[in-house]
Amino acid sequence: MTTFSAGDTVATLESEPIGRMNIAYMAVAMRDPNPVHVEDDFARQTGMPGVIAHGTFVLGLAGSMLTREFGVDAVQRWRIDLTAPVFPGDTLSAEAVAQEVDGDRLAVLLAVRNQDGTVVGRGDATVRL
Results as ranks from 00 to 15, higher is better:
14 E>R: 13
31 R>G: 12
110 L>D: 06
87 F>A: 09
79 R>E: 09
90 D>A: 14
64 S>D: 13
45 Q>V: 04
42 F>S: 07
18 I>M: 06
36 V>E: 11
127 V>W: 02
32 D>A: 01
37 H>F: 02
2 T>C: 01
105 R>E: 13
40 D>S: 04
43 A>K: 05
103 G>Q: 10
21 M>Y: 13
62 A>E: 06
127 V>Y: 09
121 G>A: 05
88 P>E: 03
85 P>Y: 00
94 A>D: 06
109 L>N: 14
97 V>D: 02
98 A>M: 07
68 R>A: 12
28 V>D: 14
62 A>T: 04
41 D>L: 11
33 P>S: 01
37 H>E: 08
69 E>F: 03
129 L>E: 01
80 I>V: 14
13 L>G: 02
6 A>G: 12
84 A>S: 13
5 S>F: 10
113 R>M: 02
111 A>D: 15
53 A>E: 06
18 I>T: 10
85 P>R: 04
56 T>Y: 14
11 A>F: 09
52 I>S: 01
54 H>T: 10
56 T>L: 09
68 R>G: 08
35 P>R: 02
89 G>A: 04
94 A>F: 07
5 S>L: 13
48 M>L: 15
72 V>E: 10
7 G>E: 08
116 D>F: 13
73 D>W: 01
99 Q>G: 12
48 M>D: 14
49 P>K: 13
63 G>W: 03
31 R>Y: 11
58 V>H: 00
84 A>C: 07
93 S>C: 10
39 E>P: 01
28 V>Q: 05
55 G>S: 11
103 G>K: 09
93 S>F: 05
10 V>Q: 01
56 T>E: 08
113 R>H: 12
25 Y>D: 14
49 P>C: 10
124 D>N: 06
111 A>K: 07
124 D>T: 03
42 F>P: 05
22 N>R: 11
36 V>H: 03
81 D>S: 14
56 T>A: 11
34 N>S: 11
67 T>S: 10
112 V>I: 05
105 R>Y: 07
69 E>T: 15
12 T>F: 04
113 R>Y: 03
32 D>M: 11
50 G>H: 07
118 T>R: 14
1 M>W: 02
73 D>K: 11
23 I>Y: 06
84 A>W: 10
51 V>H: 00
21 M>E: 15
32 D>E: 08
54 H>Y: 08
58 V>N: 08
87 F>W: 11
85 P>V: 05
40 D>T: 00
102 D>H: 03
81 D>W: 10
